[in-house]
Simulated assay, not measured.
Amino acid sequence: MAPIRIAMLSGPRNISTTMMRSFENRDDCMVADEPFYACYLKASAANHPLREETIASQSADWKTVCSELNAREGAEYSFEKHISFHFAFAPDFGWLDDARVFHLIRDPRAMVASYKNKLDDVAPIIDSYRIQRRLYELRPAPVIDASDVLKAPEATLRALCKALGMSFSEKMLSWPAGPRDSDGAWASHWYDAVNASTGFKPYEERKIKLSPELETVARACAVDYAFFSSRRLVA
């Protein structure tokens, strides 16, 4: 029997890899790390760190990746970590028809500040929110906020699992440090913090100072963030 697909859509720098670790640590779950990243890089010509390595490691054909996701075997659940702006050039959302979708959100100012530390072009964060909202309006799905997860990991994950129609596992709360074979080819640039983690880090309220240009990007996401925030699961 094919696994039940769990598809998480998230913007970048939004504890998305931490969430992937959480699901992968379950006994009944395999993961797919950003399977459409090469498709996005090829379609956009974006100059991301480890671009060539990423394209060499994955198919850059949309239909091929969709087929691969539907053909996975070996666990009850298959968790898919998707960065939403990867679908800026996607032909449609049909590849999600058989998946249980949820949205992971975060305060755009925090996302912009974190993403800028890794990549200069932060504008795709705007695309992520626009794409997620377009999908949500076609097909409403559970929403969780990264800050809620960090403030109350167990309660928020229990609520998420219930909304997804799956059981909660205590193993979702902690995991061994280090990289995984399932990590994407880009991991050495992006995953240093999560590789050092053994669980959800405590939530910290941080003072964020952005340049005028970065504030403009964050403001462009504000309406969509508010839309999702008002619909998020509250444990």
Results as ranks from 00 to 15, higher is better:
K201D: 12
F227A: 05
L210T: 03
A185P: 01
M1S: 14
H103F: 15
R72C: 11
F168G: 05
G94K: 03
A235M: 00
H103C: 07
I126C: 04
D224F: 02
S229W: 00
G199I: 07
H48V: 12
A110G: 15
E52Y: 00
L119H: 15
H48R: 11
L210G: 01
R231K: 15
R206I: 13
E204D: 11
I83P: 00
F93Y: 12
M30N: 13
G199P: 08
N25E: 06
D107L: 01
S22K: 06
C221A: 09
D192T: 12
A2Y: 08
A123I: 07
S182K: 09
G74R: 11
R5T: 12
K63W: 05
F228H: 02
R134Q: 14
F85R: 01
S182H: 06
M20A: 11
M1D: 11
P49M: 10
M172D: 07
I55P: 02
R158P: 04
A7G: 01
D120S: 12
E76Y: 03
Y77I: 13
L119M: 12
E205D: 13
I55M: 13
R133F: 09
D192L: 13
K151M: 14
E215T: 08
L164N: 05
P179I: 04
G11V: 10
I105H: 03
T156S: 15
K151H: 12
M19D: 05
P179W: 03
S44F: 04
S57M: 00
R72M: 14
E73A: 13
C66D: 10
D61S: 10
S147F: 03
S128T: 02
P91N: 09
K209P: 00
E213P: 02
E213C: 04
L104M: 11
C29E: 10
A146F: 08
A7L: 06
V101Y: 07
H103K: 04
V149D: 02
S57G: 05
W186G: 02
I15F: 04
A75M: 09
A38V: 11
S188Q: 13
S230E: 15
F23H: 08
H189V: 10
V65C: 04
D120C: 00
S57H: 06
R133D: 04
E154N: 06
H103N: 08
V112M: 10
F200E: 08
V112P: 07
P108E: 08
E76N: 10
P35Q: 07
D97Q: 13
N117E: 14
T17I: 09
D98N: 13
T216Q: 13
R106M: 07
P153W: 03
C66I: 07
W186T: 02
I144R: 00
K207L: 12
H86N: 14
M20G: 08
P124T: 05
S230M: 10
D148H: 10
W62G: 02
S16T: 10
R21G: 02
D192W: 00
D121Y: 11
R231G: 01
G184D: 09
L150M: 15
P202W: 12
K201M: 11
K42T: 15
R13P: 03
G199T: 12
C221L: 04
A177V: 05
E205I: 07
V122I: 14
I55W: 02
I208G: 07
N14T: 07
D120W: 04
